[in-house]
């Protein structure tokens, strides 16, 4: 694993990092701002006994945030190993 990482591989690693960042950020945007934007309409739906927009603000979006971060950590650790830039070598 001590071979120097080629310029090309490095670029590829960074490109994939940016891609996963963009995807996760879009999900973050939807569960936050889109849900707020349509709060009045979404509240007409009942979910687990809650008005849906209230549920999202109080629990649903939060759960998604935790999942996003855990996924990112998992994905990036795998990416590090694949491209030979992980700290443990």
């Amino acid at each position: 694993m001590n071979n120097p990482v080629t310029e090309e591989r490095r670029k590829e690693y960074w490109r994939r990092t940016l891609r996963v960042t963009a995807v996760l950020l879009s999900i973050w945007f939807v569960v936050t701002y889109v849900v707020i934007f349509y709060a009045v309409e979404l509240n007409a739906i009942t979910f687990l006994g809650f008005p849906f927009a209230f549920y999202m603000g109080a629990q649903g979006s939060l759960i998604v945030y935790v999942v996003l971060i855990v996924f990112y950590a998992w994905y990036m650790n795998r990416l590090d190993r694949e491209f030979g830039v992980a700290e443990e070598g």
Binding site: N3, P4, V5, R10, D80, G84, V85
Partner: peptide, 9 residues
């Protein structure tokens, strides 16, 4: 900064 560890080449 962008790579957790880069082997010196």
């Amino acid at each position: 900064l962008r790579y957790p560890k880069l082997a010196k080449g």
